[in-house]
Design a binder for these strands. Sequence first.
DNA 1: GTCGGGATCAACT
DNA 2: GTTGATCCCGACG
Length: 205
Amino acid sequence: MSPDPLAILAQPAPLVAPALIGWTLTHHTPDGVVTVELTETEAYAGETDPASHAWRGQTARNAVMFGPAGRLYVYLSHGLHFCANVVTGTEGDASAVLLRAGRVVEGVDLAQHRRGEHVALRSLARGPGNLGQSLALTTQHSGAHLLDGGSLVLAPPARPPAAVSSGPRVGVSRAHDWPWRYWLTGDPTVSAYRRSKLASASLSR
DNA sequence: GTCGGGATCAACT
DNA sequence: GTTGATCCCGACG
């Protein structure tokens, strides 16, 4: 039998992130249902992680990350893009896993309508902001339980993915060299590796 | 009350 | 491969 999903999520983020590859996230809305199979994740450790929102302690926005595992943390990036995280670890430990990309496996028409009619199938949920838009996630969903049988459901796959790769994190200005980014090897929905601007700047020195 | 940074995306060369 | 757009949140005085 497959183990209790909550037991998996209660581990530290760097262990949960690779384990989440291949899981599905489903969002039931009045419009219909969209399901995304996760193909790319990224771990954030919390207070010990300079790149985490929780680095400087608890605030009103990131309070969800300090709570128990199995809940959703959504934040607004650059004033435009909604990015979704799964809260991991134990209560009081502000670790979380960022959902960077996925493949839409259910509700393609609805997701395509949300993203724009001429968006390629494989690009529907490529990138954290695009994934959030395909699932119609906003900050009002932050704190929602994912294992509660609510409108948002996170579920393990029938069988583990074939191969998972790991590498440096993307788009963060600090601690980018921690290999805490994981993706389904060879999957077209995974974005190409882009070193952060600050990282490439320090590299050229 | 003000300032500066940021876990991004899309378009253009 | 590279550059610009664009809004919110948190820190500090």
